[in-house]
Structure formats: structure tokens, C-alpha cells
């Protein structure tokens, strides 16, 4: 446990250090490059802001109306069998469909249950280990004009489900 804590404290500063040193060695204008990237970050946040408001309100409404609790109670027996925390269910359902949407839900989960709570950690790991599958398939196939996709959606969704279940298992084992 202590080693994991140490490593996770070390990881981020070390990566930043390494990248900056690498940039210096290759004689890049490190700070100018950094500024360009940071501006992009600004754009990303501005672009997701409207989605975030829309979905925060919708999900907040769902939660306060009590229907999520009702659904969780209803699904509990099934979810208990595979030991999947029901609070993460909305995230799991939206993840393959919408990138900004699932990000909003994950953030909402972390905000309500705590960043370092079990549920918050699981939501984080799910976000890191899955992708916006439908979007990815769409741009990759359409970019080369392919129409017959041979049911690629099935293995892709299986990969997502595996990613989600493994996220839950790993979180249980590690934290």
C-alpha cells in the first residue's frame, strides 16, 4: 500500500520532469510549445462546458427525482452477481456513446461520492480504460470510405465491457 502511494505520488511529477528535460535536450522552445498546448486545453474546456451544464442538470434531475435509486434497487440482484457497483451503471451505459457525456457523468460521480471513494476510483479507472467506441469506429471507417464494417461493433463493445469489469476488479484488489 505504501509503495503504491509513493509511486502514484512520484508518477506525475516525474513524467512532467522527464518530458521537460527531453524537450530541452532536443532543443525545443519548451515554454512556447507548452503555451500552445495550454491554449488547446482552454479550447477543450470551453467546448465541453455546454455539454457539462446540460448533462449535469439532466443527471442531477434524474438523481433528485429518485428514479436512479429506484432503478438501482431494481437492478441490484443482477449487479450483485457480477459485483458491479450500481452507482457506476449510468457511466457504463453512456461511455461507448458519448465522450463528453460520459466525462460529465464520471465527474458528477466523483463530485458526489468523493474523488477517492471506491465508486469515484472505479469511475476514474473506467474512464481511463475505455473509449468512445461508437465515435471511434465511425471516424476510422468513414475516413477511408468503408461501408461494410463486418459487425466490428461486437468485439469493440466486448472490449469495453471487459475493460469495465476489470476496472471494478482491479479497484477492489488494489484499493
Amino acid at each position: 500500500m505504501q509503495i503504491i502511494n509513493y509511486l502514484s505520488n512520484l508518477a506525475m511529477p516525474f513524467i512532467i520532469f522527464l518530458i521537460v528535460v527531453f524537450g530541452l535536450i532536443e532543443r525545443n522552445k519548451v515554454f512556447d510549445t507548452f503555451l500552445d498546448g495550454a491554449k488547446e486545453g482552454l479550447e477543450i474546456v470551453f467546448n465541453i462546458f455546454p455539454t457539462l451544464i446540460g448533462l449535469f442538470v439532466a443527471i442531477g434531475a434524474l438523481r433528485s427525482s429518485g428514479i436512479i435509486d429506484a432503478m438501482v434497487n431494481f437492478l441490484n440482484p443482477v449487479l450483485k452477481i457480477i459485483q458491479f457497483p450500481s452507482e457506476v451503471m449510468p457511466l457504463a451505459l453512456l461511455r461507448p456513446i458519448s465522450g463528453s457525456g460520459s466525462m460529465a457523468i464520471a465527474t458528477d460521480i466523483m463530485k458526489n461520492f468523493g474523488v477517492d471513494s471506491n465508486i469515484g476510483l472505479i469511475a476514474s479507472v473506467i474512464m481511463g480504460s475505455t473509449e468512445t467506441t461508437l465515435y471511434t469506429i465511425a471516424i476510422y471507417t468513414s475516413s477511408v470510405g468503408i461501408k461494410k464494417t463486418r459487425n466490428i461493433i461486437i468485439p469493440a463493445l466486448i472490449a469495453d465491457i471487459v475493460g469495465m469489469i476489470v476496472s471494478v476488479v482491479v479497484c477492489r484488489l488494489v484499493f
Binding site: 524537450g23 507548452f34 503555451l35 498546448g37 495550454a38 491554449k39 474546456v45
Partner: peptide, 11 residues
């Protein structure tokens, strides 16, 4: 977000 994007842009 800006910090990470900046760092990753260097990479």
C-alpha cells in the same frame, strides 16, 4: 487541463 495539455504538447 491547460497544464496537462501544455506538457503533453511538449512530449
Amino acid at each position: 487541463m491547460c497544464l496537462w495539455n501544455g506538457i503533453m504538447h511538449i512530449a
